[in-house]
């Protein structure tokens, strides 16, 4: 298994779902993980030290609030003196046809999915540069690269994630900071499974591997990109979609 011993990681949107899987996978690999989610969030992720040597620390922070973001990185700096990995996972997802998109909802989605991601990268890269580099991993989506009917707003936000990931990779490469994104297809989070309630067959028909991803499938790609095994990988959008056709 890939290891993240002595690595300090920040994971956003980590109370449940894919973020929870990323935080737990990193900690199982030996990392110290600061798991961020909203103050109102109920963390399903266990907090504390693991037998693997890793650790999960819950941090209640609003990533759309600059003060909250700054306080989080200040805490990491004071407690650890460095940051190795930022996993930008938090996002808002919604499904509307073009004619049903409200500007307010669009603004909120971009605030979380794009603007907050950029601010997290601004602070993280400053910390990473001080200690000789790091890895930033952003959550994109297959709809950000391929588009999807009924997901115009979400695909626009994720398309922005694809573009900002490539630009940041070029800008931060001289500081040995790698920037990549993961683009999942359909992921069987608890929320999605509940929403679909038995309609899996109609949705998995266009997935080559014949099943939706588990959160752990996505977390494993994050683990690779976070690890030193990916030391020459930057500016890439890694599809984790089970060969899905859109």
């Amino acid at each position: 298994m890939l290891r993240l011993e002595n690595k300090i990681c920040v994971v956003t949107g980590a109370a449940r779902g894919i973020g929870k899987a990323i935080a737990e996978t990193f900690a199982q690999a030996g990392a110290r993980v600061y798991s961020l989610d909203l103050p109102s969030a109920e963390f399903e992720t266990q907090e504390g030290r693991l037998a693997s040597g890793g650790e999960i620390i819950h941090v209640r922070a609003d990533i759309t609030a600059s003060d909250s973001v700054r306080a989080t990185f200040m805490r990491v700096k004071k407690e650890c003196g460095k940051l190795d990995v930022l996993a930008n996972n938090a996002a808002i997802i919604s499904y509307e046809m073009l004619g049903m998109i409200s500007k307010d909802k669009l603004r909120k989605m971009f605030e979380v999915d794009v603007f907050a991601m950029i601010e997290m990268m601004q602070y993280a890269s400053r910390l990473m540069a001080k200690s000789g580099g790091g890895s930033i991993i952003n959550m994109a989506s297959i709809v950000g690269t391929n588009g999807a009917a009924g997901q115009l707003a979400y695909s626009a936000a994720k398309g922005a994630v694809v573009a900002l990931t490539k630009s940041a990779a070029k800008e931060l490469a001289p500081q040995n900071i790698r920037v990549n994104a993961v683009a999942p297809g359909m992921v069987a989070t608890k929320r999605l499974v509940a929403e679909m309630s038995g309609r899996f067959e109609e949705k998995t028909g266009n997935i080559g591997l014949g099943r939706m991803a588990l959160p752990e499938d996505i977390a494993n790609v994050y683990l690779f990109l976070a690890s030193d095994s990916a030391s020459y990988v930057s500016g890439q959008i890694i599809g984790a979609d089970g060969c899905m056709v859109l």
């Binding site: 003060d67 700054r70 990185f73 700096k77 601010e119 601004q122 602070y123 400053r126």
Partner: peptide, 8 residues
């Protein structure tokens, strides 16, 4: 210290 982005 850690500067706010606006201050940077």
């Amino acid at each position: 210290v850690m500067f706010e982005t606006e201050d940077v």
